[in-house]
């Protein structure tokens, strides 16, 4: 009898979202109770923010055109990791030496700095993330155009 009642509630899809929200809330409380969790010091891709650097958010250390030490999971799979500052074109190098805005011109400046953690060691993630966005855009565009037809 109780199973019948539960399944009747669950079969109405309007109840699914409140149910899931409640499950998330309960799970969050359980997670908060289980805190604190120990932080593992030996992390992949460590990064220090160097306040004085002109390449600031993207500075992985090391001089341009040489390889910096990057702690990746499988270093043998990405032999060119750590050449972040090697991607600097002569113009970018000029910008980074004479202005303090090089780190933030990454979008507007092709051939500037590429975050080689994203593109070199975790390339598949970078592919899947825009795919999610593009699929969402495709759905939105299709629904928008369908609405215009009628």
């Amino acid at each position: 009898m109780i199973i019948q009642k539960i399944s009747r509630i669950l079969s109405n899809f309007d109840n699914i979202l409140p149910l899931f929200a409640a499950a998330c809330a309960v799970m969050s409380i359980i997670t908060l109770i289980s805190l604190p969790l120990a932080y593992h010091e030996d992390q992949l891709y460590p990064k220090r923010i160097v306040p004085g650097s002109t390449l600031n958010p993207y500075d992985r250390g090391g001089p341009p055109f040489t390889q910096a030490e990057i702690h990746s999971q499988y270093p043998e799979n990405s032999p060119t990791a750590g050449y972040v500052t090697a991607y600097l074109t002569p113009f970018s190098l000029f910008l980074s030496e004479y202005t303090s805005y090089m780190g933030t011109t990454i979008v507007a400046h092709p051939g500037g700095i590429l975050d080689e953690i994203l593109y070199n060691t975790r390339g598949l993630d970078t592919v899947v993330e825009p795919t999610i966005l593009f699929i969402a855009f495709a759905i939105a565009a299709y629904i928008f155009r369908k609405g215009g037809d009628e």
Binding site: D125, I135, I139, I143
Partner: peptide, 23 residues
């Protein structure tokens, strides 16, 4: 074989499922 990649693919599946019936 990567946990973060797995979560990305699962969210992509969720979006595609909405897309299948969006029309």
């Amino acid at each position: 074989g990567d946990l973060f990649d797995f979560t990305l693919f699962v969210s992509l599946v969720g979006i595609c499922n909405v897309g299948i019936v969006a029309a």
